[in-house]
Nucleic acid binder design. Sequence first.
DNA 1: CCAGACGTTGTT
DNA 2: GTCTGG
DNA 3: CCAGACGTTGTT
DNA 4: GTCTGG
Length: 227
Amino acid sequence: MCGTYAFRKAPREVRALLREHWRPIDIPDDAWRPSYKIKPTQTAPVLVGHSTPAIAKQRWGLLPHWMQERGKAQINAKAETVAEKPMFRDAMRKSRCIVLADGFYEPTGQTQPRPWYFFQDEGESLMGFAGIYTFSELNTVDSASFAILTTRPSKDVALVHDRMPVILPMDDWETWLNQDLSPPALEQFYQPEVSPRLESWPVPDDAKKASEPDGPNCIEVFNRTGI
DNA sequence: CCAGACGTTGTT
DNA sequence: GTCTGG
DNA sequence: CCAGACGTTGTT
DNA sequence: GTCTGG
């Protein structure tokens, strides 16, 4: 994935959705600000916790506690190898999270600049990416950082790009967060064939370039103008 | 042993 | 922290 | 594919 | 002759 996703739902709305479709989570109204473009190094809300899930704010770009160079933080981890890689395996075993989103961007083609497409769930429901996280001394305030797992593209995405985030249907969130399960038990989630149907449309050029990520140019993306 | 890597995706 | 390559 | 190894020990 | 690493 191209390193940008969207989470434009407000805490109040998410609280209601979770209560209705998953389980009730305590979320303050000011837990986060909706954003049309969440990019690496930014802080974003994720679901963590086994018996009592909760919202945590974490930095996008995972850094193990033993790695000192912030520049080596990783925003993605390949699902095919995440359980073995030294950088990821501890987090994969014991620190999984669900990255809340409602869509993601993917670049396409070879010609520069590469156009983007936006993908979202057909049902417009809450999207959950499979994530892992670590704590690091380099992160003082929000001490945890996370990475999003990637996998082969589903049919919908394959036309545009060769990788996509691992998307977990809400029914699987509990399983993903269950620390008692080991990585082999989770491989079922990496199959793009079980990914939800996604709809997509081109991102207007000025929305892609918008420096103010929550300004009117980005909002166009969600109104599907500029197609 | 011990130094060096440890990762993925993109080039707005 | 742990593994690999030299 | 093809060059190069083909072996073990070691730290304080 | 056969295996491995690049």
